[in-house]
Amino acid sequence: MGAGVLETRLIDIGRERFASDVWGRAALLTRGVSDFSDVFSADAVDELISRRGLRTPFLRVAKGGSTLPESSFTSPAGVGATISDQLDDTELWRKFADGATLVLQALHRTWEPVSSLSTQLSTELGHPVQANAYITPPQNRGFDDHYDVHDVFVLQIEGTKRWIIHEPVHQDPLRSQPWTDRRSAVAEAAQGKAYIDTVLEPGDVLYLPRGWLHAAQAQGKVSIHLTLGVHNWTRHALAEHLVEVALAALCDDPEMRRSLPLGVDGPDAEVDAVRERLAAAVLEADTTSLFHRTRRRQGRPAPLGPVAQLAAIDSLGAGSLVRLRDALEPRLEGSRLSTRVGWLDFPEADLWSVRRLLDGEEHLAADLGVELVERLLRAGVLVPAAQ
């Protein structure tokens, strides 16, 4: 398959070394690894804020370590629209000129080049990826020292920014363990010797595992950086899945549904029996399907144009070229194909063609069966090869 975006655009040490020595373990600074002008830019910032009609929460504004209320930079959309929270570009300009940082959130949903990069990285890592951009005026900082509950790749797009990194005060925090729970420990650690104190320039990339403390300040020009947030799957998350499946199975156990005895003095007398049955249910639990369903829900398939899709169906013939829609997370189990757009059952005669489609290559409709291709086009599983 060749090198992916991790190796070609974000690091320069090779995937295997990154996986064994860096991933989830240490911060990594990579200088001049890529030109990101094709991914994001100052022009993209201006277009998104002033011309795309974005609403909250696609943008937040921060100044002096605090997030400003949404009502201070939104306004009604005007005649013909009953939308009261669209971005007000004039108010945003005033706040930006006054030193506020603009945070464009969920760019993997609103800017195609960022969406493409995020999707590719998510596929390579096996963990969901989202993207935010931080636009900071000269000599300003948006947030105080803090840590994130997900890993990040920081891509410096334009300008420069000084980053001060400290080691964790709480290793590998879960999503339920934000930095605000350890505010005093974070503040104390931030006064110590930095693990990294550097200025990022365009093309530089900084990788931070979750829990690593950081603060950043723009230098002499406007700074734009893109953060790719990796929402890590953890052993704790797998444990949650095991317990969920086990508890669902115990619903069918009459002994577990039985009421506790009258007058019982606390549950102590029942705990051993419950623990034994729960442990047995956990051992028997098959979380494969639940894991993949959850993973599919955490991402979105590649964009689908309804007009182009209908045109592809109307013009479908034996010579039509089609391919699997990108980022579907397809999984064929028996005769059922599960994807991010739902599931389909197939007769035995179609399974050979379905398996061929999963290679992601282009295929002639005649080789797969025109009727099968039409069904999959209508389901949003296949798209015309040119799309």
Rank of each mutant, 00 (worst) to 15 (best):
E167K: 06
T234R: 11
H170G: 01
P178Y: 09
V222P: 04
H166E: 09
S259P: 14
K221F: 06
A248V: 01
K161T: 11
V186Y: 08
W179Y: 15
A218C: 02
P209D: 08
R210W: 05
H166K: 08
T160M: 11
P209A: 01
S259E: 10
A190G: 03
L206G: 00
G220R: 07
W233K: 00
W212E: 09
K193H: 07
Q217P: 00
G211Y: 05
L228C: 03
H241N: 14
G203W: 06
Y207A: 10
G203V: 01
L206D: 03
L260Y: 12
H225E: 04
V199S: 04
I165L: 02
W163R: 08
D172H: 05
P178Q: 13
S259C: 09
D253A: 04
D197R: 01
L250Y: 02
H241V: 07
A185F: 06
E167Y: 00
M256S: 11
Q219K: 01
I224V: 14
R235L: 15
G203C: 01
H231V: 05
L213N: 11
A185T: 04
E255H: 04
T160C: 14
H236F: 15
P173C: 08
R162W: 07
W233P: 04
T227P: 03
R162Y: 07
S184Q: 15
V245H: 11
I164F: 00
H241D: 12
Q171G: 01
E167D: 13
S184W: 09
E244K: 15
V230N: 06
V199L: 00
A246F: 12
V186M: 11
C251S: 10
P209R: 02
L206K: 03
C251F: 00
A189M: 13
H231G: 11
W163V: 06
R235H: 15
E188R: 15
I196A: 06
S223N: 02
V243I: 15
M256T: 02
R258E: 15
R182Y: 14
V199G: 05
I165D: 02
S223W: 03
N232M: 05
Q191W: 08
G229H: 02
R257S: 11
R257K: 08
V243Q: 10
A194T: 04
